[in-house]
């Protein structure tokens, strides 16, 4: 396990650096936005990673409610924390990008509001965990909130289609007459796909590291409880 974490850590960090070099040194400047379009290579992969992280929370929350295996809750908690960090970065990089292109850091349109809601739900998730003392009760309540919180993600993703928003529709998941057609030339698209892939590996590293920590914390708490008996 330690070896896998170490390997994932360094391959993903080197991979991220390589992607950044590719983006900054090799890529042509995008025609309408110019240089600030490079924020996309941070923003979009962070979005996908946030989606995945909370999907993992969703899956392992269901698994916990079903099997009552402590490990499942540890994974869900670890993924939620990593997801929350990525979600915050989505909001921050998005705000910066918005300022350069739209001319505002923030608007209350559907895409931005539902994304902020996701962040607040998972902030609440950790407050909930901290407020419950019983380990099993904590896990059960958190699982329910984790499942509900994940349901915001399809809403976020579809918000640009369902409502009128300032945020543009999806570039990557664009469908043209039933066919997936990202509206981007391949020289801009490939580095984006590569960055997404590497960032997911980076997420996996963070998840495993955080999971390891969570396991040890639970062991420590059990030992402490035994000494108090």
């Amino acid at each position: 396990m330690k070896k896998i974490i170490f390997l994932l850590e360094w391959t993903s960090i080197i991979g991220l650096l390589a992607c950044a070099l590719w983006v900054f040194l090799k890529l042509p400047i995008e025609a309408s936005q110019g240089f600030p379009q490079k924020i996309m290579y941070l923003h979009v992969p962070s979005v996908i990673t946030t989606y995945l992280a909370f999907f993992v929370v969703f899956v392992f929350s269901i698994a916990y409610l079903w099997k009552r295996e402590l490990m499942f809750d540890q994974i869900a908690k670890a993924s939620a924390e990593v997801g929350l960090v990525f979600c915050a970065l989505v909001l921050i990089t998005g705000a910066i990008w918005g300022q350069t292109t739209w001319g505002t850091y923030w608007v209350w349109d559907a895409r931005l509001t539902t994304t902020l809601l996701l962040f607040l739900i998972f902030m609440g998730y950790f407050l909930l965990r901290m407020s419950v003392n019983d380990r099993d009760k904590e896990a059960r309540l958190a699982s329910v909130l984790g499942i509900i919180g994940f349901l915001d993600i399809p809403i976020i993703h579809k918000s640009v289609e369902w409502w009128r928003t300032l945020h543009q529709p999806s570039t990557l998941f664009k469908v043209d007459s039933g066919e997936a057609k990202p509206s981007m030339p391949s020289e801009l698209l490939y580095p984006l796909l590569a960055t997404i892939f590497v960032m997911l590996a980076f997420y996996l590293f963070l998840l495993l590291l955080r999971f390891q920590t969570e396991k040890r914390i639970d062991t420590l708490n059990q030992l402490l409880a035994e000494t108090q008996d």
């Binding site: 042509p28 400047i29 995008e30 025609a31 309408s32 936005q33 379009q37 292109t101 739209w102 001319g103 505002t104 608007v107 300032l166 543009q168 529709p169 999806s170 570039t171 664009k174 509206s183 981007m184 030339p185 020289e187 801009l188």
Partner: peptide, 15 residues
Amino acid sequence: NQLLVKHSEEYTVET
């Protein structure tokens, strides 16, 4: 009193 620029989901390179 506020002017926001919408940008499209289409990205292009000057080629």
